[in-house]
Design a protein around this nucleic acid. Structure first.
Length: 204
DNA sequence: CGACTTTGACCAGCGC
DNA sequence: GCGCTGGTCAAAGTCG
């Protein structure tokens, strides 16, 4: 039973994403966000790096939805040069017709799905949520297995798949399915000093 | 001892 | 109907 709708999550960027990378253009930067509390170490994935030519930010991403929903990047080594975000349908189209049909199998309803390509030596993105691996499967046309993870929060049904590209083994494709119905523990933990500071200043 | 990973088995949808 | 494939289950193993 799907039950009651989850409470909306606050539209805040994860503190462990440096906002100077996160927001673009620079004019959109609020003065407060320009000077956040120091992020937990190490720095996360770099979504946009002004001095790095091959980095890019995808303009169509609803970042607020992403970050308050299924995504919140965490303590990953800063290796990302590009990120690809698609809808579930787009993901399947990239895979081709047959796989498209197969991939949509056993899906009761279309859930939000997002895929990211991450250049990383490690398979698992630490996105601030806790995941339990429930399966691993060798997939066709790939020499690397696909891993299946489920959010460990008892009321949360979000899943993710992690697979390394056989074409470029340095790229890890992470596909998120669903929206978290609970706050990111690590995010809230790291944001709390900042939020307290905000509350203090808004009193004047 | 609880949380998590591993891994083989099982199930369901699709194409032929 | 059968085989292929992706996705999930669950028991056993591992780790802190």
């Amino acid at each position: 039973m799907e039950g009651e709708a989850p409470p909306p999550l606050p539209p805040l960027p994860p503190s462990h994403i440096n906002p100077s990378y996160f927001f673009t253009p620079s004019s959109a930067l609020g003065s407060t966000l320009l000077h956040p509390p120091p992020p937990p170490t190490p720095l996360p994935i770099l979504l946009h790096q002004p001095h790095q030519q091959d980095s890019q930010i995808i303009p169509d991403i609803d970042w607020v939805s992403l970050l308050s929903g299924s995504l919140g990047f965490g303590e990953q080594k800063p290796l990302l040069a590009s990120a690809a975000v698609t809808t579930g349908n787009q993901i399947e189209e990239e895979k081709g017709g047959k796989d498209k049909a197969r991939a949509s199998r056993t899906k009761k309803a279309s859930r939000p799905r997002l895929a990211f390509q991450t250049r990383s030596t490690e398979d698992i993105l630490d996105d601030g949520f806790r995941w339990r691996k429930y399966g691993q499967k060798a997939v066709k046309n790939s020499s690397y297995p696909r891993s299946y993870y489920r959010c460990t929060h008892h009321t949360c049904n979000v899943k993710k798949q992690v697979q390394r590209l056989s074409k470029d083994t340095s790229i890890v494709v992470t596909t998120y399915e669903g929206i978290h119905n609970h706050p990111c523990e690590k995010l809230m933990e790291s944001l709390s000093p900042f939020l307290k500071q905000m509350q203090f200043f808004t009193r004047f």
